[in-house]
């Protein structure tokens, strides 16, 4: 990896276990700032778990234990005394299946803002609008801001969830197969959105869609069986992978 990119996140010898099953083994990598990094790999290779370990979401699941360090701007997020709520504000996450709260569109976006103590209606309006605009959803929902978010289409819901996540100005945005449950048009919209977002945020995306990884990401990591097989610039990965396994996977020979 070239040295001129600053690393937003640095993973050092990270291992993760669910109950008695090892999910990640000794992962080390540096996620560059203001870039899109994609994690690819076969199902169950641990790419989602790795993503979730960046804002400590794994510990909300039963029986997990983490070893190693993850540095955000040089500070270990697994250190004792780290405020997890604040960490998650800085490192947002969007899941595979859209999960809007059963509230109105407006309230969904304002939810995180209210948690941050923002109460003035004017400021809230302003921030909600800007977040929805950034998520390229504003034009579609401006007339039904106060209707239930559950009635939006799948693609709209997912963009709403992204808007909700970026409303609180995270520094890193983690996307866990954000488009896999969506139709092609919605997928395209989400991909365009990611492209816009990378100017402000560091994006990490998990995908099992090779074309998507090739299209949107700057860097790609290939994981297999809980191990990091290869991590490099996307162009290099897809044209000239250094590992045999990577090549096999990318060309569809397994996985």
């Amino acid at each position: 990896m070239k040295t001129e990119v600053t690393a937003k996140l640095e993973v050092q010898d990270l291992s993760l276990r669910f109950a008695d099953k090892t999910v990640l083994q000794h992962i080390s990598m540096r996620i560059p700032e203001h870039k899109i990094t994609a994690f690819i790999g076969p199902s169950g290779c641990g790419k989602s778990s790795l993503l979730r370990s960046f804002n400590r979401m794994n510990e909300l699941l039963e029986d997990t234990s983490t070893d190693g360090r993850v540095l955000l701007d040089g500070a270990d997020i697994y250190q004792a005394g780290v405020e997890v709520a604040e960490l998650r504000r800085r490192v947002g996450i969007v899941f595979q299946k859209p999960n809007p709260f059963p509230h109105s569109v407006y309230e969904n976006v304002a939810f995180g803002l209210r948690l941050q103590g923002i109460k003035q209606p004017r400021k809230l309006d302003e921030l909600v609008e800007s977040a929805l605009k950034k998520a390229a959803l504003w034009d579609e929902v401006r007339d039904r801001l106060h209707h239930s978010a559950v009635n939006l289409s799948g693609g709209q819901q997912q963009r709403l969830v992204i808007a909700r996540a970026i409303a609180i100005e995270p520094e890193v945005l983690l996307l866990d197969e954000p488009a896999s449950a969506l139709d092609p048009i919605s997928t395209l919209k989400i991909e365009e959105l990611m492209y816009d977002l990378k100017q402000h945020y560091t994006l990490v995306i998990v995908t099992h869609n090779m074309q998507q990884a090739a299209r949107v990401s700057d860097y790609t990591a290939f994981l297999n069986m809980g191990q990091l097989v290869e991590f490099d610039e996307t162009n290099k990965m897809f044209t000239d992978p250094s590992q045999r396994a990577t090549e096999d996977y990318i060309t569809g020979r397994f996985g």
Binding site: E83, A85, R89, Q116, G117, I118, K133, K134, Q199, H200
Partner: peptide
Amino acid sequence: MNKTALIPPIMPKQLLRRRRWYNR
């Protein structure tokens, strides 16, 4: 989209502390 146009919603320390207390 200009990031500086927004008020960055960084939590005041006080609020953070209060939320932590409520949580506990």
